[in-house]
Design a protein around this nucleic acid. Structure first.
Lengths: 143, 143
DNA sequence: AAGTGTTTTGCAACACCGTTGCAAATAAAT
DNA sequence: ATTTATTTGCAACGGTGTTGCAAAACACTT
């Protein structure tokens, strides 16, 4: 099932199917949230070299399988793109939420980034909206 | 003039006046834009230790003299707070613009971050809005 | 202005992060 | 099954951010 899904995703993006790529894609599909490089390094076990993970993430980014999320703690996170953002063309204009309690980063798929009017002379190419606070599940635990 | 301003800023925030702090504050006042750690390291000359710069930025952050701006290239930038955000309480709810041409990061002081409605259960603490593209001055050069 | 106590700085050392070149291993194509 | 192209792991490197500690600089008192 997930094995099949992973293979299909790789094929659809014209990537050769290797152990490392399968493992990392699997992690993203299981996780439903964003992962940093080091998250992946830990979760993947000792089976893959750091360099392979860097290169795989880079490849996935270029192919539009994942998108990157800037953070204020100097650790870029990556998350699966939902719709087809193939060829590096992303249209993931949703808000990213970072929980200060559990540390998870999630994509709020249904919260759109509002459009912004820039001063004259500025040309907008990409917009990132990061909201930090307490997420749904951490909030429930406090009750 | 600027010397005086720097001293006043430090005094107002109950910080002892040292060469390093003066130099770094000076850079921020001159620059009118955001600076990364390495920007400061380069601009300050070889006069200050890396560690001192790290610690100074940390101190300025805590005192609310500067705020940090997340970026997608793994290099946090810092910018002066305009109004009094003393004691680490920031209210710099403006948009940050990163120019892909010149690499500069500027605070668009007059572009407010729109308020966002989050799904139930999520509690918002801080909002960061990053827009990348081409800035005013780089745009003019293309004409 | 000098002495005292406190804060800040620079140095050394360290662990981590991200990149590159190259040879070996793996996947794809025939 | 063999060949060709791609991917991986290793080694090495430079950059980044942190900590402990001793020396230096600062603030405060007299």
């Amino acid at each position: 099932m997930i094995e099949k899904k992973v293979d299909d995703l790789l094929k659809k993006n014209h990537l050769s199917i290797t152990g490392g790529r399968k493992r990392i894609l699997e992690l993203f599909l299981q996780q439903e949230g964003a992962l940093s490089h080091s998250d992946i390094e830990k979760k993947a076990g000792e089976k893959f070299d750091r360099v392979t993970i860097y290169r795989t993430l880079q490849t996935f980014l270029e192919k539009g399988l994942i998108h990157s999320i800037p953070t204020s703690d100097n650790s870029i996170r990556y998350a699966l793109c939902k719709d087809d953002c193939s060829g590096g063309q992303h249209h993931d204009d949703h808000v990213h939420f970072i929980c200060n309690a559990c540390g998870n980063t999630v994509c709020l798929e249904h919260v759109a980034v509002p459009s912004i009017e820039l001063p004259g002379g500025y040309v907008k190419e990409q917009v990132d909206m990061l909201i930090s606070g307490v997420c749904k599940s951490c909030n429930h635990q406090d009750l």
